[in-house]
Simulated scan of single mutants.
Amino acid sequence: MSTFGSANTNPNKSYEVTQPPGDSISSLCFSPKANFLVATSWDNQVRCWEIARNGTVINSTPKASISHDQPVLCSTWKDDGTTVFSGGCDKQVKMWPLLSGGQPMTVAMHDAPIKEIAWIPEMNLLATGSWDKTLKYWDTRQSNPVHTQQLPDRCYAMSVKHPLMIVGTADRNLIVFNLQNPQVVFILLLVLKTEYKRVVSPLKYQTRCVAAFPDQQGYLVGSIEGRVGVQHLDDAQQNKNFTFKCHRENNEIYSVNALNFHPVHHTFATAGSDGAFNFWDKDSKQRLKAMQRCSQPIPCSTFNNDGSLFAYAVCYDWSKGAENHNPTTAKNYIFLHIPQESEVKSKPRTGATGRK
């Protein structure tokens, strides 16, 4: 087993969020309206901080928290920035009217842990993906789902940019939904398509994360083998598809745990179990910035609503099993990085062409 090259938890000199969770962090999400950051954790808690930035000075103030009965795996905000949804191993989603100080209430249920969650403002519906092999759409005012979609396997990843929804499941299935018709308009089970067998694709190994393009023309997919695929939906743009390696070091291969598009420049970040996060430009096929590796994995990350802050968690991600987890030495951190324009703004490709 490799060790991380440095014992430095914060080699990029990011700002450390105060009072982090007591166990590994499973998701991070910023309010779409203000700098409120929510984190979910394996300690059964959902926490919110208010982030204040003045130039390069950042302050974080714990604002509120709620509890689930079991570890919490996913979170999202309502588009008006008033309400947080969280789901996890207790098989339920809680709706937390955070800004009004209201009490959380259960608004969705599954038969197995809920791995992914998304609020779809264009439909005024909540989407939940579970290990029970279903995707459900909920009107939060009703106790039953408005639609239940059977999935080919357990839900591992989900991303929505209306009308495009991408769901990644076990066994390397990727399902593409057109939400203008919530019944599936077309399903791409990519591993079954012969043309995809000819390329070394991220779908050769387990899907870890997906991210819909901001222009809804395609999606990114990241896998446990340190590879990202850039996929376009239009048949006429298939020649733009490519895969690239990342989060690898000295023959060690690490999972790509998070894919986040910058809300302004539409470049994207990857974060991995190697403890690094990088910024990329898919259109010029280049890495814009490689950040130094932290001493623990990065299981999740997110941009704030204007892209001026990038939040990432640094903690054990369980990818090497319980036997490699030392609770006495393992600490949990949430860091805030201020992206520089040179790190996240597209620039023309120079020099050699081809795949990275």
Rank of each mutant, 00 (worst) to 15 (best):
Ser2Pro: 15
Gly5Leu: 11
Asn8Tyr: 03
Thr9Val: 15
Asn10Tyr: 01
Glu16His: 08
Val17Ile: 14
Thr18Gly: 04
Pro20Ile: 02
Phe30Ser: 04
Ser31Arg: 11
Lys33Asp: 00
Ser41Lys: 13
Asn44Arg: 13
Ile51Asn: 00
Gly55Thr: 10
Asp69Pro: 08
Gly87Thr: 12
Gln92Glu: 04
Gln92Ala: 04
Gln103Thr: 15
Ala112Tyr: 08
Ala112Gly: 03
Glu122Ala: 08
Asn124Gly: 11
Leu135Gly: 00
Trp138Asp: 05
Asp139Ser: 03
Thr140Val: 15
Gln142Asp: 07
Pro145Lys: 04
Leu151Ala: 01
Ser159Asn: 07
Ser159Thr: 09
Met165Val: 07
Met165Tyr: 01
Ile166Arg: 00
Gly168Ile: 10
Asp171Ala: 11
Val176Cys: 01
Phe177Met: 07
Gln183Pro: 09
Gln183Ala: 02
Phe186Tyr: 08
Leu190Val: 12
Thr194Phe: 05
Val199Tyr: 10
Ser201Arg: 12
Lys204Gln: 03
Ala212His: 01
Gln231Val: 11
Asp235Leu: 13
Asn241Lys: 14
Lys245Arg: 15
Ile253Asn: 03
Ser255Trp: 12
Val256Asn: 02
Ala258His: 08
Pro263Gln: 02
Ala269Ser: 14
Ala271Lys: 07
Gly275His: 05
Asn278Phe: 09
Met291Trp: 04
Thr302Trp: 01
Asn305Val: 11
Gly307Leu: 09
Leu309His: 00
Val314Thr: 06
Gly321Asp: 01
Phe335Pro: 03
Phe335Ser: 00
Ser346Ile: 11
Ser346Cys: 06
Gly354Met: 10
Lys356Leu: 13
